[in-house]
């Protein structure tokens, strides 16, 4: 916004607008907690019961941990990824569909404020569901967090990245089907194949190499390193990949907002 940054009141307006959008987004998922917070809690409980308690003991230890300990980080990341993504894509597309996104577009709110406000909702819901799943996991196993900073930072960066993914999806979506395509056909397969339920060390050569092209593998393993101190890949590589994807996604989101793609005719 050329010529705007020096205008008196610009910073104040931007901060209040950011707080308004962030609170609006947070209030939205808290208000409909039966749709946003309860389902992941139930689903992840079922994962722990079935894969952890019932099937896990027959599988035996993996990477030096009991099977339920091994899957806890991946299951937490699954909920973080899905909820961060779904919060932003459904809220942003809903705002487009009902056209109340125009309330913000006609206001002096800068594009980066709109983006950060929506991301705040996605990151908040992703981390909150992650926390709920951690609390549930405590009923099934005892995990002592090995590297708290890595655990929290990886969860935060992953929630941020997938909130950005949801935002980009929301910009391009034209109908409700469009917001289900990416989670169903891309996100879920990549998450299941991202080392949530197994170590890639178990895979034969070519499949192992293919798995390394899956970005979710790096997030799951980095988070597992934070919780258990175990990872199939170097932690620095995981951070680098996550941060590069975040930078690309932020640039793309701001470019799309600036161009008005899907928002302005």
């Amino acid at each position: 916004m050329r010529g705007s940054a020096v205008y008196p009141g610009y910073a104040r307006q931007t901060l209040i607008a950011l707080r308004t959008i962030a609170w609006k987004e947070t209030h939205r998922y808290l208000r409909i907690w039966l749709q946003t917070l309860l389902p992941p809690a139930i689903t992840m409980t079922l994962y722990f019961v079935i894969f952890g308690n019932l099937i896990g003991p027959r599988i035996g230890p993996m990477a030096g941990h009991t099977y339920i300990e091994f899957i806890v980080p991946g299951v937490i990341m699954m909920s973080v990824i899905t909820n961060a993504y779904m919060n932003v894509v459904s809220s942003f597309f809903g705002a487009k569909f009902q056209r109340h996104i125009e309330e913000i577009l006609v206001s002096p709110t800068p594009n980066y404020t709109i983006l950060v406000g929506y991301l705040a909702g996605g990151v908040g819901r992703g981390l909150l569901t992650g926390l709920i799943v951690i609390l549930i996991s405590m009923a099934f196993t005892h995990i002592q967090i090995q590297h708290p900073f890595i655990t929290i930072s990886v969860a935060f960066l992953t929630a941020l990245l997938f909130s950005l993914g949801g935002f980009i999806n929301g910009i391009f979506a034209r109908k409700f089907d469009d917001i289900a395509i990416v989670p169903t056909f891309i996100l879920t397969p990549l998450t299941y194949l991202g080392g949530v339920f197994y170590s890639i060390e178990l895979l034969p050569g070519v499949w192992r190499e293919l798995s390394l092209a899956n970005p979710i593998l790096y997030m799951v393993n980095a988070f597992r390193y934070g919780l258990l101190g175990e990872s199939d890949i170097p932690i620095q590589t995981a951070y680098s990949i996550i941060i590069v994807f975040i930078i690309i996604s932020v640039c793309l989101s701001l470019y799309l907002l600036h161009r008005g793609v899907g928002l302005r005719t």
């Binding site: 607008a17 309330e103 913000i104 002096p108 709110t109």
Partner: peptide
């Protein structure tokens, strides 16, 4: 909310 978007 509208007031918030305008920095009020």
């Amino acid at each position: 909310n509208q007031a918030g978007f305008y920095g009020i």
